[in-house]
Design a protein around this nucleic acid. Structure first.
Length: 117
DNA sequence: CCAATGACGACTT
DNA sequence: GAAGTCGCCATTG
């Protein structure tokens, strides 16, 4: 993190910050929405997120199967799960329950805007 | 320039 | 479900 030329972080964080409370999305969905980089890049960006003074709800980002693959980056191994629990999301064995029900795709933002017209 | 490294994803055994 | 393969691409050494 020395070159500030890449806006990639900003893009990822911007989308991540828009995830509705009580919902979750996947790395792939974010990468898909941004249409650049890949799921790996999203994970990489979130890894660096703790270095910023911003509050990124990174706990709302899990992998495509609903597993909390990044929980080891939250200090305590159960921090991510607790954060999700506090938002009404049940996690069992490192996997989000009813993942399909809570899953949110950034594309829904546009859908809401259209519906609001 | 090349190789290794991921908070990944889809697919196949 | 577990484990392996391949594609992914910015970053680092």
């Amino acid at each position: 993190m020395k070159k500030a030329k890449n806006h990639y972080f900003e893009d990822v964080y911007a989308v991540t910050a828009l995830i509705p409370k009580g919902r979750v999305t996947s790395y792939g969905a974010i990468a898909d929405y941004l249409a650049l980089g890949s799921a790996r890049m999203v994970g990489w960006a979130l890894t660096q997120s703790h270095q910023f003074p911003l509050e990124i709800p990174a706990h709302r980002v899990v992998n495509s199967q609903g597993y909390l693959t990044g929980k080891l980056h939250f200090g305590e191994v159960d921090t991510m799960e607790l954060l999700l629990n506090s938002e009404g999301i049940l996690v069992k064995n490192d996997k989000v329950q009813d993942f399909g029900k809570y899953f949110w795709h950034p594309r829904e933002l546009e859908m809401e805007d259209i519906a609001r017209l």
